[in-house]
Simulated assay, not measured.
Amino acid sequence: MSIISITAEAGRDICSRIASGELEVAGIQVREAGSKQIRYILRGLENLPADRTVLDGFPPLAPLLQAIGITQLLGVVAVAQNAATALSLRRIERDLAEIKRSVDGTVEMLRRFLPKVDLITEGMRSSPLNRLESSVTAAVTAHRHGERSALIGAMEGADWAAREIRSQAQHLVDVVDHCGLPWALTVPAELANLIASASRATYTASSLHLALNQRDAAEKMLRGTVGTIERMRSQLHSVLTDPELMLRRLANDRGNDGEIIAAGKALRDALHICRGREMMIRQGLISSDPERVAFERVEPVQDVGFVEIRPVPDALESRAS
């Protein structure tokens, strides 16, 4: 797939439209500021180190740096690396350990804060985690030996587990306390942990779909998580901009604004990573690994630039994130 180099005339034009505000950067997506329609994917940044000194001295990035600045570029590089890293066994093990740590901590915190509210029961905590771990173990063996039926079973287990973890994050936003405020605003750090875990689990499940050459299913899995995150952000935005609800929150002296901001950032980052990965899969930039060393492979790129997105009818594409 051809890439519009940042240093080419067309690439510099795109950068100038970003600088003018006509286009905006959201993760590795470049979209129209008004309609939010995705126009390009920034490609090649996943090969760069997230090091300010390196990026500052990398001449090909000059037009993009002038358009968005080093701070946002560092964030884009981080998103690119997360959206387009081939899923290996080592990464899976690391992600599973992080998911378990996050969910365990979340359950313990909820028990202390909400002893009478059954938000996340012991069974709901352990079941998705155990299912995800066993599914990944089975998938590794099945993938190495080319056992498709066993890999399908493992994929179905991982898919279910990812959806369950995602639903728990949504539950924190849906369930309200006696003031009519979502419990997520009482324990925003736990919301951030759950959504990060849901994002990681979705990543793993989508990779197993790719290992089976089920690209449409991988995209659908990622779109589902994107849709959940968008709903959560919309619900929390409505609450946080409602004067009456905010007066109730202040009256209860929750004093966790910093954690709420951090949770908002976690939601935004997960949204950008899942949406970026979905778009890369759609464009054929991430596919199954025929050598079965990993579940997927990322198409190599020699330049940093923009990949134009082919128009696809999709309601989520025009929704502001």
Rank of each mutant, 00 (worst) to 15 (best):
A26V: 03
V107S: 09
R94S: 15
R52K: 08
K100H: 11
N47H: 08
L119E: 10
R52H: 06
L87N: 07
R101Y: 08
A84Y: 01
S135E: 07
K116A: 12
R17D: 08
N82H: 04
C15K: 07
S5E: 13
P49G: 02
C15I: 03
L48R: 13
F113K: 11
N82V: 01
A97I: 07
R94F: 10
S2D: 13
N130M: 02
I68H: 13
L96M: 10
I3S: 13
S126F: 10
A78Q: 05
K100V: 12
T53L: 11
D118F: 09
R101E: 11
Y40T: 04
Q72G: 11
A19V: 02
K116D: 15
S102P: 05
A84D: 01
S2I: 03
E22Y: 05
S127E: 10
T85Q: 08
V79E: 00
V76C: 02
L73E: 04
G34T: 06
G44Y: 00
R131P: 03
A67F: 05
S102Y: 07
R39G: 09
E98H: 08
L45C: 11
E93T: 14
P63I: 01
R94M: 10
D95V: 03
I68S: 08
G75E: 02
D13P: 13
A78D: 07
